[in-house]
Design a protein around this nucleic acid. Sequence first.
DNA 1: CGCATCCTTGAGGGCCATCAAAATGCGTGG
DNA 2: CCACGCATTTTGATGGCCCTCAAGGATGCG
Lengths: 260, 260
Amino acid sequence: MTLEEELERFPLTGRFLFGRLRETLSLEERAAIEALPEEIATFENSVRVVEAGTVSDRSTLLIEGFMMRGLDHMDRPGEQRSALSLHVPGDFVDLHCFALKRLDHNVDTVGPARLAFVPHTKLQDVLATMPHLGRLLWSSTLLDAAMHRQWIMKLEQLTTPRRIAHIFAEIWRRLDMVGLAGPDGFDTPLTQADLADMSGSTAVHANRALRELREKGVAEFRRGRVIASDRAALEDYADFSADYLYGEGQLAIEAKHYAI
Amino acid sequence: MTLEEELERFPLTGRFLFGRLRETLSLEERAAIEALPEEIATFENSVRVVEAGTVSDRSTLLIEGFMMRGLDHMDRPGEQRSALSLHVPGDFVDLHCFALKRLDHNVDTVGPARLAFVPHTKLQDVLATMPHLGRLLWSSTLLDAAMHRQWIMKLEQLTTPRRIAHIFAEIWRRLDMVGLAGPDGFDTPLTQADLADMSGSTAVHANRALRELREKGVAEFRRGRVIASDRAALEDYADFSADYLYGEGQLAIEAKHYAI
DNA sequence: CGCATCCTTGAGGGCCATCAAAATGCGTGG
DNA sequence: CCACGCATTTTGATGGCCCTCAAGGATGCG
C-alpha cells in the first residue's frame, strides 16, 4: 500500500512504522492502531507535553510536526538542556512509558505539532487480543533504543560538525520513510540552539560547525531548511549508515521472522 | 525472598531483574525463566560473543562476569571502539535482538564470564502462554533504553572526570541491586582504556581524569577496583541520580501497575 | 627473569566553551 | 509602510579541556 492510500484509510496513524515494519501488520491490526487515540490535540512551539518524573497512564503518538525528548540541566533549569531524541510524524514518542509508567525525561514540541494520546488501558486490551501487534509495539520501542545507541556512538566518536551532519542524515532518512523529505533536503523547525543541544555543544559553536558544513559543501542550514545536493557526501562525512534504522532493506529479513 | 534464597532456587537467572521488578514475578514465572537457557558457556577475557550485523536466533543472559556492547570504529577496526553499554550479572544482554533479530552492535566479554543462551523459540513459547512475563521482558529492554538515555546526557553535559564518576556511580548501584558490591566500592575487570571507551575519551586522558578523582577525594581506581568512601560525594560530583535505574524506590509504583 | 599489558607523565596543538557584541530576520502594532 | 521588539544568527577574542605523539614505569604471568 502506498503512503497516500495508507493515510487515506488511517489518517491518524498511517505513518506509524511506515517504511519499516508496517508491511507486517494486517489491516485489522492497522485498524486497531487507528482506534487507539482517545484525544487529538494541537500544540504550539516549545510546549512541554509530559514532564519528567510524572507517572502517566497514556502515551503520545506524533501525527504532525516534531517533538524532542530531553532533560533540563539540573543547575540552570530551562536554560541548558540535554536533548535525547528527536521525533518525526509516525513516531510513538513515549510508548515505553506504557511499560515503565514513569517517564525519566521531558517530552516537548519543537514547532507546532498535532498529537494523539493513547490511554494505556486501550493498549492493554490490544495486547491481550492481538499478540502479534503487541510484539510489533515492543519492536518499535527497540528502534528507539537502537537510535539511542547510534547517538551514543556519535557523541563518543565525532566532532561537532560531523555530529550535526549525522543528525541531518538521520532525520532525512526518517522523514524519507514517512514521505516528508525532499529530493535534496528537508524542512524542520529546528534552530541552531536545538542542534547544539542535540550535539552536546553550544549555539555559538554549532553556528561555526554549520559554516564548516557549508564551506565544505556537505550541507546548508538556513532557518530550519536543510539542503544537501550530494546526499552520499553528507552521509559519508558523518560516518552515517542507515542500517540501525531498520528500514526497507531489512524488511525481508524481519518479515520472515514476524510471520507468527 | 532474599537474594540468597533466590539464587538457591534459580541459580542461573536468580539475579534477573532482582532489586527491580523481580518481585512482581510469580514463582511459576521465575521457574519459566530458569528453564529458558539451552546452553551455558564460559568465556575468557575480551571474547566477541555476537558480531554486529548478524541475524541471531538466540539471546544472551549474563550469569557471572561483565560484558560490553559496542562498535569498532570504522576507520581502524579493533583499535578504537565505541562503548554503548556495560552489563552486570542478571542482565539479559541482547534480549532486544529477539524482537529485532539483527544486532546493530557487538557483544564482548570484559574479563571472564559465564553466559546462558536462550533460543528465541523458547521465548516465543513463553510469550504465548505467559503474557505478564512477556510484558516484563519488554520492560527489561526498556530499562536498557533508559540507561542509554542517561549515557547520552552524560556525554552531552559532563567533563571526562565527571563522566567517569558517573560510570562508577551507575555500576555501583547496579551491582548493589544484584548483591555484588561492597560498602565502599566494588570490583570490575575494567581497564583505563575501557573507561576511556565508555566516556568517549582516550586512555591517556582517562588516566588524568582518574588522578583528578583521586586528588579530589571522589573515588579511587586501582586495577579494576573502585573505592569511594563517600558515596554521596561521588554521586553528587557526577550529577548522578539513580531514578533512571527504576530500582527499589519505584517498585511500589510499578508493582501496582503490573498487577494484571 | 623476560615479556606483555597496563599505567603514568610530559609537551605541543586543536577543538570547543565562554564572554561580549553586533547583525539579521520576523511578527506586531503604530 | 515603517518602527519596534524579540529571537536567532553571526563574528571576534581568550582560555580551558582534551587529543596526539612519545617515552618511561609498574604490574602480573609464564
